[in-house]
Design a protein around this nucleic acid. Structure first.
Lengths: 335, 335
DNA sequence: TTGAAAGCGCTAACAT
DNA sequence: ATGTTAGCGCTTTCAA
């Protein structure tokens, strides 16, 4: 292991000069700079980050906590976060919370200890009740899922407006019996993405003068492709009539399309389907999936900007909440 | 910031006793143990990992370098690696190489510096020429892509046998004009996953007594859904006749199915399609995708086992190469 | 512009 | 069973 002292000795300077050259701090004379750089090259020196971290208290690592990279939306999010963070000089440590509140609290608690300068948390379960925890933690940005009022920075999705637009789109395409495909969550939960998207669905129906029919709530257990396929199959088996489905996520929409295929129903001829997220696969499925496309790059850029501001300036300041713009992308599944 | 000394002072012991209690090393009397734990609770102490890292030289972090989490296969791989690593007490820092050799070399080079105890590299481009680099690096396991002979530990996919089985399966389903959908790579590259899978396709054809027809190589630029869709469309436009497609990955297979749909060809009635990887979506696409399913859990468990052995025991030892078992999963796309 | 000294928080090695 | 000492490799602070 080559240390700074080794380089300093070889270059005939002090370790401080080596440090200054390497980090481009204070001005160093041309001569010494050359000698140091030569010595670095000759020895193959690389800096020991732990030593720097111990001394400075910053790690250059950002934590990213998501339910699971197995969910296509979060994988794509992770990809963007890692790429963008790299541009800003940060590495990313990924943590999977399993969509459990315990995992999410863990993520926040551990980030303390975990050599992270900041944390991006894509929270599903954690709520305002845990705000105290969040406030005590390292710099934090919540991404995409819940709403928290004033407590923390939050980059949100256009949940209500998105599913509202999706529902209105189905009506415009001629649908009159529009189902809602989503896992159910307690209606009194005020800060849940699922509730917000359900609300948008209801607003969309209302905009079109359609009545909500409880029969049209597809019984989905977890928001996975498998459960969505099973749920829609159940609804068909129950003899419920419907000609459109708004799905809470693209994954659920894919599951719905799969379940409809199993039941011998055609998309879009018999049933039109629209999702939410615009994951990559939405363009390539057969039929391709109409969906609500939040501006993912904007979200990630914004989240990392907020986070690095908080990292650089620790002075307390109120949380900000920003909502991503979105487009409705009409594809074959609602044609 | 609460330090070990704070805890020690409050508990009326030395920092070593605190250290021993926290890390469960040497035996500590019940009484002192209690006092220390109480003091930890009271102060809310969490250990400073940088200090420990500086002292011990280990970080508890494993690097994972993949081309991109945007590729569904690597996202699912990442999910498994993070979950399994967590079980073993490691955190995971993810790096995206962009499938460029520069990115991969970077990953190896940086891992030195990067506070990783070990690195799992899913390499696409890096080859035996860079073996020197690999040997100088921290403990390393190559996962899934290339073959390296003796140099490093390598958990490989059943590339040749997999596509051979896939090809034979198509023949058994009645196909006689079987296309190969993949990006092309230089034929003299001896250590490339694509070459191996192409070889398996050729062996499968030979097993069935079929002749290889250069017309049947689908022109795919990158192994993405978009390029695969474009490639198969081109082939249809060129008037090439075919009744089966072996795709180098599931993503390419999805692109192929999408391109066939654009061309008005039905899967499996007009063309049968089989992929490689068995990503989640293969079960839920319409039609569902037949594919070669390597045992992913086995691969990840094996890779992490090899890696943690090398982390714990630095004595040099020859590289091992293990090949994952696989199953052929027949679904609708080849029915 | 450069260097010397001190110390970040922890643990290995050595006392007791 | 517990404590003392020294030092991991870097950067901050102060002095020259």
């Amino acid at each position: 292991m080559v240390t700074m002292s080794d380089v300093a000795r070889l270059a005939g300077v002090s370790t401080m000069t080596v440090s200054n050259v390497i980090n481009g701090r204070r001005s160093v004379s041309q001569d010494l700079r050359r000698r140091v750089l030569d010595a670095v090259r000759e020895t193959g020196y690389t800096m020991n980050r732990s030593a720097r971290t111990l001394r400075t208290g910053t790690t250059g690592v950002i934590g990213l906590a998501v339910p699971s990279l197995d969910h296509m939306y979060f994988a794509e999010l992770g990809s963007r976060v890692i790429a963008k963070a790299a541009e800003l000089g940060y590495r990313v440590a990924v943590q999977q919370t399993g969509a459990h509140i315990e995992g999410e609290i863990d993520a926040v608690a551990m980030s303390h200890t975990l050599d992270c300068d900041g944390l991006i948390l894509s929270a599903i379960e954690i709520g305002p009740e845990e705000a105290a925890l969040l406030n005590r933690s390292i710099p934090l940005v919540l991404l995409g899922e819940r709403l928290y009022g004033e407590a923390v920075d939050h980059v949100a999705m256009p949940n209500v407006e998105g599913t509202r637009a999706a529902t209105v789109h189905l009506v415009e395409q001629g649908c009159r019996r529009i189902a809602w495909a989503s896992n159910a969550v307690p209606e009194d939960d005020q800060h849940n993405v699922v509730i917000d998207r359900l609300l948008g669905y209801r607003r969309g129906l209302a905009d079109a003068g359609l009545r909500e029919d409880p029969e049209l709530l597809v019984p989905v257990d977890q928001p996975t492709m498998a459960d969505a396929a099973a749920g829609i199959a159940q609804m068909v088996r129950d003899g419920v009539e419907f000609d459109g489905v708004v799905a809470v996520t693209d994954a659920v929409a894919f599951g719905v399309m799969r379940g409809l295929a199993n039941a011998g129903l055609r998309v879009p001829q018999d049933v039109r389907v629209i999702g939410f997220d615009d994951v990559q696969h939405a363009q390539f499925s057969v039929p391709s999936l109409s969906t609500i496309a939040p501006d993912h790059d904007w979200m990630v850029t914004t989240a990392l900007t907020l986070l690095s501001e908080r990292i650089k300036d620790h002075s307390p300041r109120p949380g900000r909440e920003l909502v991503a713009p979105f487009r409705l992308v009409a594809r074959e599944s609602t044609a």
